[in-house]
Design a protein around this nucleic acid. Structure first.
Lengths: 341, 341
DNA sequence: TTGTAGGCGTTATCAG
DNA sequence: CTGATAACGCCTACAA
């Protein structure tokens, strides 16, 4: 079952490879008759160009790389969805790599993609990432590059993000509006920009409402897991029994919090109100249903690809490209876990 | 920032391209001295082979394709995880495409991957798939191919599956052991082999326990969604108020069932016991915690890649390959939703 | 309108 | 030990 090449078509038709190539690409300088014949035979033999050869010639692979911290993650898998869909619409395929939240792996993945000569790279940083040599290498090689969600602020590239600080302010304000006076925050790891911004938003919201900030009400996740949420909930209730509201870095962790409180029969939201972040599917099916901040994940993926596409086109045409930053809207979703008044 | 080629290294060193190539690949017939020099310069200039050229020459891309019904799906994203990890260990990258449970899309994706000349294809069928022309084309072209989870039984290819029928028998037996006498089944769509097998398992378990099979106790999902679970739970309770156990095709749907019962304050498991399938993460955090059948998803991905790898190696070496089928073990996980006695 | 020739960057064969 | 030469399959000036 060998593959058909231009050469074979040319041979069978007794014409040159060049003519066959031109005919198939509908060049104006081929007679309709030969064009016809070539098309027909190509179709009959089910000719498809050898993409390896095309890649080599055109220096493009119509393939992009995506590096993401975790595939098994409601938010990220939705982003992937958006990216793949948008890429496919535009004739691109997507190679996906996981950093597993490890900087070392992330660097390795970048190297792999550069080696593979993908046409562009999309990336969301791992939680460990506090170093950007590998990212600088991407830029230095002139490879089109777009960051999304967890970004390195100082890198000059296109970005698709949400306003984490504002979203956090709104989430905490929501708790305050529901009557919470003493609000704890379970924050994300120290590195990621979005954990930092959400934390800053938490502080600002308190400040704006003239509630004193207490550093001992802030708990820091390392792995951002269900188990951590469970454990911190226990700590919070033991160390600060009068806490009446918790703003949690993400829904998964918040679900852990709810699990502990449910087990201890601590009433939510009457004693403690809880709000999460990201609007995972699970949040609407647990008891009590979790209030959260909705973050447009599919949209984020789609937009990230679009920015990358623009840059890839400029790159190919040797035109200069100005990085852009797109900020997507978030919305507070009120459910049972903050339903008071 | 142009890329370094063998030619340039050869030029700078005043030797031939051939020698450079050999030196870099550590051929025995190059003097240690030249080898040294070449290595050093290559390293200094950060030479990396142009993978497009290598692909063309070797007729391999060290890339495989994966077609999956849904990325945003706890089970499948875990499978993806296993595949990517195992592939990377063996020097392969993975292009992921989604069929969105549509046969038409699935066919398109297959065509894309064939065109791309991936070294192999991994696939789980969409629910719509009742036709296998596209799969036959893969085999006909001699592309290494492995099916997993939702498979076409009659296609002669390697497969990684679980014993759905047996797992279903065990799940229903579990309900019976817990005292259930009238058991409903919310089944998957008509096409997929695993939905059929689970349904058959349900029937067999009833039979073995001398419980009469009633076709009106079987409800068929079309989209396998939370909403369907919710709606069928309502129907079941209205049409058959004496049903005391439900075996549900998958956890997502089972969670919908629980949601309705919770809302109606129908006690689980005392009035009705519920068991799901697949052990989604969500199942252990909802109330009541859902009993289910655990299915090794990461493992399935990893094994599927291994089978594909074997086949790709045979393919490259022009050796014959015998398809294999691997059957992975499932386990019943007892949680609150069936916790009686 | 058609064909020739060169090259993309690598690898493999074979002769020196 | 080294290097010339010929592919891999396609594209594109340029010549005929």
């Amino acid at each position: 079952m060998k593959n058909i090449t231009l050469k074979e078509i040319a041979h069978k038709l007794g014409i040159s490879i060049t003519t066959v190539s031109k005919a198939l690409k509908n060049y104006p300088d081929v007679s309709p008759k030969t064009k016809q014949a070539v098309m027909a035979l190509a179709h009959e033999l089910q000719y498809t160009p050898n993409s390896f050869a095309v890649n080599l010639r055109t220096r493009e692979s119509k393939t992009i790389g995506l590096i993401i911290p975790e595939v098994v993650h409601h938010f990220f898998s939705n982003v992937i969805n958006g990216i793949i869909a948008e890429a496919e619409k535009n004739g691109y395929l997507v190679i996906i790599l996981q950093s597993n939240e490890s900087l070392e792996l992330e660097k390795k993945q970048v190297a792999l993609l550069i080696n593979k000569r993908v046409d562009g790279i999309l990336m969301s940083l791992s939680n460990e990432s506090n170093d950007d040599d590998h990212i600088k290498e991407i830029l230095q090689k002139g490879i089109p590059f777009v960051q999304f969600d967890k970004i390195a602020k100082l890198i000059r590239s296109s970005k698709v993000i949400i306003n984490d600080q504002l979203a956090a302010i709104q989430a905490v304000q929501h708790l305050i509006d529901k009557g919470c006076k003493k609000i704890a925050h379970i924050r994300g790891p120290v590195n990621p920009q979005n954990a930092i911004d959400r934390f800053l938003g938490y502080k600002k919201a308190l400040e704006k409402n003239e509630i004193a900030y207490q550093s001992d009400l802030v708990y820091t996740c390392e792995r951002v897991s269900f188990e951590e949420g469970y454990a911190f909930a226990k700590q919070i209730i033991e160390q600060h029994p009068d806490v009446d509201g918790i703003f949690v870095i993400t829904d998964l962790v918040a679900v852990g919090v709810l699990a502990y409180f449910n087990e201890q029969k601590i009433p939510i939201p009457s004693q403690i109100a809880v709000i999460g972040f990201s609007n995972w599917f699970m949040s609407q099916v647990i008891t009590p249903k979790l209030s959260t901040v909705d973050q447009p994940s599919y949209e984020m993926g789609a937009q990230a690809f679009q920015l990358l596409l623009e840059e890839m086109i400029c790159h190919r045409d040797q035109k200069p490209f100005e990085p852009k930053t797109i900020e997507l809207k978030t919305t507070i979703i009120e459910r049972e876990s903050t339903l008071r008044n």
